[in-house]
């Protein structure tokens, strides 16, 4: 599952990128609504968020952009937003409008399951799954809570830290993924830090899906033109997809 910051590097290229990742084998796409204070994000996504905000991106524009795409995506769309922009928009309006444009799931990194009941209730009315993040530091009690309250899949955070491509990931990661899978029927998708095919292969041995954000934005930054961006991201997604053994979409689309 690739992560793209809404409206980055610009609105037009962003929409083309959505089609590009779809065409190159992404099973789902996560769209990040930019926020001025992205606490869970490392430097790469911080910079992309800032640029998107400078381009005038908002919650409303993100939803409008998805709505006005010439052809609907065939893969599910998961929206990621910090709570304040969607709280400000109005939870009910947000879920209704997101549902109208075909959004399937919602990740809100600064909502903890203890505080997420209202969001879950509203999202459920509009058929949107709320996905919680499970961290390596989550206690047994919290793991149960997160697995019980997550819908669609569970987002397993690979390491203690913020988003951003890393050269290496924790050694016991697969063991931990396995342990979580034994406790739940939910597909387990792993994100944070994944930057290359060999890491994806390794994690793919136990995870149901991998989420890649900063590595893609790093690629986008290095290109000089829209066509270069599209082909470079397309190649990256293809390579990643090949690295993963299973090819089915575990998400109930």
């Amino acid at each position: 599952m690739p992560f793209l910051t809404s409206g980055y590097p610009d609105q037009e290229t962003f929409v083309k990128l959505l089609y590009e990742v779809e065409a190159n084998g992404a099973d789902l796409v996560e769209i990040g609504i930019p926020f001025s204070d992205p606490m869970a994000d490392g430097k790469t996504i911080q910079a992309a968020s800032r640029e998107a905000l400078n381009n005038g991106m908002t919650v409303r524009k993100t939803l409008e952009m998805i709505k006005s795409m010439p052809r609907k995506l065939t893969i599910p769309i998961i929206l990621m937003s910090y709570l304040n922009p969607i709280f400000n928009y109005g939870l009910r309006d947000f879920c209704r409008h997101a549902s109208d444009v075909g959004v399937s799931g919602l990740i809100v990194p600064d909502v903890i399951p203890d505080e997420g009941r209202e969001l879950e209730r509203v999202a459920e009315v509009f058929g949107i799954d709320v996905v919680y993040l499970l961290a390596p530091t989550s206690s047994t009690e919290r793991i149960h809570m997160i697995l019980n309250q997550s819908r669609g899949f569970v987002y397993l955070v690979s390491l203690a830290g913020v988003t951003g491509a890393r050269d290496s990931l924790p050694l016991a990661l697969n063991q931990w993924i396995q342990a979580i899978k034994e406790q739940s029927q939910l597909p387990v998708c792993v994100g944070f830090g994944i930057s290359n095919v060999s890491q994806a292969k390794e994690i793919g041995r136990s995870a149901d899906g991998i989420i890649i954000g900063s590595a893609i934005i790093d690629i986008i930054k290095k290109q000089n033109s829209t066509s270069q961006i599209l082909s470079a991201v397309g190649e990256f997604i293809t390579a990643m997809r090949k690295g993963l053994s299973h090819d089915s979409c575990y998400y109930e689309c």
Binding site: F35, D37, N84, I86, N88, D110
Partner: peptide, 19 residues
């Protein structure tokens, strides 16, 4: 009202919920 740094409180923000 808005949410920043883990709590709900009054907040100086834009119409779009940016701080």
């Amino acid at each position: 009202p808005g949410i920043l740094h883990g709590s709900l409180s009054y907040l100086l923000q834009t119409a779009d919920g940016q701080i």
